[in-house]
Amino acid sequence: MRWIVRSYTVGNVMKELDQLIHQPVRLRIMAVLTALEKDDRVDFVHLREILDVTNGNLGSHLQKLEDNEYIKVEKKFVAKKPKTLLRVTNTGRSAYEAHIKALHEIIGI
């Protein structure tokens, strides 16, 4: 009986996990971005170096996060060179915090 209750609880918490963030690369992106101060923007190139992924791979994950308004992408030119800057939105920060809380709940069960 106890086992059934516990697995039911795990099932509930699993439902609370944000499937968009649960993917490992996207979890890492969100971890890096939320670790920064509010309004901090990270350069695409440095984020790629930290995550050790290709341009295309990072680009596709960022697109998904941007489509869901978890991050904001800004482009500008510095010394005539394009620079892409990324920052987490309030929605993204809340989603990440809720996701981490759900993961802790699973471990605590």
Binding site: P24, L27, R28, A31, V32, T34, A35, L36, E37, L103
Partner: peptide, 19 residues
């Protein structure tokens, strides 16, 4: 969940150090 939390912690630290 344990692996994901460890991963998140490592990359949060990297984010802080980056800044």
């Amino acid at each position: 969940a344990q692996d994901a939390l460890k991963d998140a912690e490592v990359f949060e630290q990297r984010g802080k150090r980056l800044a």
